[in-house]
Design a protein around this nucleic acid. Structure first.
Lengths: 98, 98
DNA sequence: AAAATAGTTCAAATGTTTTTGAACTATTTA
DNA sequence: TAAATAGTTCAAAAACATTTGAACTATTTT
């Protein structure tokens, strides 16, 4: 293999993404965001999926660091949207690419 | 919603699959199987990815119960192959279907 | 028939992730 | 300017996943 380290990094990213997807709360958040066309604040999503704000903070952070959502802070609020390109690259195209 | 329980079961399956994929050893096994056209025994895969047989037994069982691999026992040996239809349905088509 | 091989099971130990509540910062509203 | 709101951070606790080695079953080879 040309570059073992690079392969490992790609794998780490892949695993981080599957880990982020492997949780019922995070899947609910993702489903909710998918069915929402407009930008929406963390708090509103959290209320919709019925979690505490601490728990929301934890899960949104994890989704963001996996690259599955994009966030934008506007004053007090943090707006989130799905990052479709990550889903395309690491989920939809996963089988094809391994 | 027509049937909350059914939705939950589908979600459980989806989570089980992402959990199964969220591990470096299991990803290695899957990659190895993808690049192998013939049926291959657990032991040979385990040797290829450098794990103990106990660890292999644990990971293969988990992959099988997630429906990601099919197994066939022939006397002492257990042969494994990827179950592509599970990848198609729960990974490749995931984003589209949620 | 003994030894070797393939895989499983079990329980204990270890490691990792998630939840919880309290205390915090920053912004907005009354 | 006080109170309310949105979100974060922290550390402890709880829950969950993985590894390990020993003992086991079943089959094959010597």
């Amino acid at each position: 293999m040309v570059n073992t380290k690079l392969k490992k990094q790609i794998d780490d990213r892949q695993i981080q993404i599957f880990k982020a997807l492997a949780d019922p709360i995070r899947l609910e958040i993702i489903e909710y965001l998918k069915h929402t066309d407009h930008e929406i604040a963390c708090g509103e999503v959290g209320r919709a999926v019925n979690i505490s704000k601490t728990s929301g903070s934890y899960h949104f952070k994890l989704l963001e660091s996996a690259g599955l959502i994009n966030t934008r802070r506007e004053a007090r609020e943090k707006y989130v949207t799905l990052n479709k390109s990550t889903f395309d690259k690491y989920v939809t195209d996963f089988y094809q690419n391994i």
